[in-house]
Design a protein around this nucleic acid. Structure first.
Lengths: 347, 347
DNA sequence: ATAAGCTTTGCACACGTGTGCAAAGCTTGC
DNA sequence: GCAAGCTTTGCACACGTGTGCAAAGCTTAT
């Protein structure tokens, strides 16, 4: 993914004036290793030397070179994060919480935006590996097992969020999409809905497919035939179009939208056709983004806990650090229904 | 900001199996410098050697060590980005576009979340400097000029987005908040509004203060006395509370909300009090986040161009690379009014 | 056949930090 | 006062990569 600039561009010594430990040592009147030991927790250094080194470091503005420091262990304190659609509410929250949790634990987030990774995210992961990162968190895209195997072989943990990779040694932290779809189906059925639709986008992401298929299965188990919308991008606008399209050709009384963004668009589109929510038409979403609680929507939705998700990702990253071995983590995070105002009361 | 783990934790050699250039050289039957030259654009290497090295690298799964490579120039290809409130729509879009533009230009985004930086973002910038980054983009927080001066002294460019630092040698890319506030004021006055309010949050960010003050000044210039709301966080919920609070005690016919999030909340809150938008009350926002276009809101707002903003940031970063010298960039990006449906037609 | 000029390539050094090793110094017990 | 044990500290090596230098090899012109 790196721009193919010539060597003068990216390796020519930039004008850099960073102070080195050698200079600090000279001012403090000690050896360079004494400086290093002063900044290494647990290393043996006398109080007098420690004080002189710290004063000299402060005077000169010394900042340790993480590049050099990490060279020794062949590992930086970076965690690579691969994500796309980062301005969508759910992905934005996920990244927000993950990046702040990483910082809390003394790690730094190396963010690679997968928006333009049409050929797959393998090149992004290859770039990340060059930084000798501690772990890689994949929030978007489907890394082939070959690149996952390469990461693992090199001692780099890969954590897949809301996605899986068959036959690959990666951690997987997944929301219970199947359970959530079932909850949504049961709620609509309990509201007395009998002409039911499911709205997804044309995106072939694991989450989209899983939720749509699981919901449709539940409706068929109840002896009903779901109407399916699965085109467009995973946006509010697609929800609006789905509402106009579906409600023109079908007399639906219940709809499950596989994401809240689609759900909010669907609500606005349905209102334009004159439908009254929830009297004429019940709508359930999935994700529980902040906008779902807004007064103009008050969308009933399936919530996945962002705290649980972030906590599990961090636990997977720190598993080996905390002496818990290298066994893989496979977690399915529970979801719950958040009742608001877009589904008729249960019969 | 780094967690104070002991040395066994963060420097103990992790189980790492990365292939080195030395191993590639052995398999290819050449010297280690021949391997290095093969991956250095413009370096002299014969076609035969190049081919053998590339085959060997592929066979062994060689990934260059960016830590070692960057040690030589004392500069990595990372760009530090400091931001908070990354799940809010505007900040999320900004980060989304910035991180993808950086990748497009062959740079990587080192993201440090400033959510918990109550004591200021100086420690975050200090951490970033340890990575010998190419530049630092500040999207949130107010770095003191001392740390900016340190960055500049070390050859690290600092770009401030929608904020300034007095007497500091940093680039500044700012939206025309003053012009935008004036546009909003003029639009409300042209709609015939005479009992006008301005809604901001309690956040003392440069943007909040600039927009609120500028708008209030314009209203006072028109001989009117603006009613001011400036408490709570910069959220949708604060907008709802502001509507309930202001509209209970004042008979306003026009309101400017300094962000769209506040505006959307204000709209929902106003509707709860029975006001009709825009007949009874006109509302203008600022930012033009995607939700402002949603059918339930159709908020008239002041838009700042995200493309312009990201383009200017990248131009500042690459200024020296492209032989344009090291002079600072100070840009005020134009804004424009986006008329939707929340302001009465002009008289 | 030979000389001049150019290309290719390995060696050794450098980049900045961490640390094993051993020497030096200090402390304590006899 | 001396020996044993412990702490402190500087030296030199290592980590992986880029590259200046010079030797070796190749090509071309005479």
């Amino acid at each position: 993914m790196e721009a193919s600039s010539d060597r003068e561009d990216h390796l020519k010594r930039a004008t850099r004036n960073f102070v080195t430990a050698e200079e600090v040592a000279r001012l403090a009147g000690v050896s360079r290793s004494a400086v290093s030991r002063t900044f290494t927790p647990g290393a043996s250094v006398s109080a007098d030397v420690r004080h002189r080194v710290q004063e000299a470091a402060k005077t000169l503005g010394y900042r340790v070179n993480r590049l050099a420091r990490s060279l020794i262990s062949d590992q930086s304190n970076l965690v690579g994060v691969v994500g796309a659609n980062l301005s969508l509410p759910f992905m934005a929250r996920q990244l927000d919480e993950l990046s702040r949790a990483l910082l809390r634990r003394g790690m730094q987030c190396l963010l690679l935006n997968a928006a333009e990774a049409e050929q797959g995210i393998t090149p992004l992961i290859e770039s990340i590996l060059e930084f000798r990162v501690r772990a890689i968190v994949v929030m978007s895209g489907s890394p082939p097992s070959s690149i996952i195997d390469e990461c693992v072989a090199n001692g780099v943990r890969v954590i897949l969020v809301n996605r899986q990779a068959d036959d690959a040694e990666a951690d997987t932290i997944i929301s219970d999409d199947l359970g959530g779809a079932r909850i949504a189906a049961e709620r609509l059925l309990r509201a007395g809905c009998r002409r039911i639709g499911v709205v997804g986008s044309g995106a072939r992401t694991p989450t989209q497919i899983r939720r749509r298929v699981a919901f449709a299965d539940c409706i068929e188990e109840a002896g009903l035939e779901p109407v399916i919308w699965a085109s467009g991008e995973t946006t509010y606008e697609t929800g609006v179009e789905a509402a106009k399209g579906l409600l023109t050709s079908h007399d639906l009384d219940g709809v499950f939208c596989v994401t809240d963004l689609l759900g909010l668009g669907f609500l606005d589109g349905a209102r334009v056709t004159g439908r009254h929510i929830p009297d004429d038409l019940s709508v359930v979403g999935f994700d529980d983004i902040p906008q779902s609680a807004w007064a103009s929507y008050r969308l009933t939705t399936v919530r996945q806990s962002m705290n649980d998700l972030t906590g599990s990702v961090l636990a997977a990253i720190e598993r080996e650090m905390h002496g818990k071995g290298t066994a893989l983590v496979h977690e399915v995070l529970p979801v719950e229904l958040v009742e608001r105002a877009t589904v008729r009361p249960a019969i």
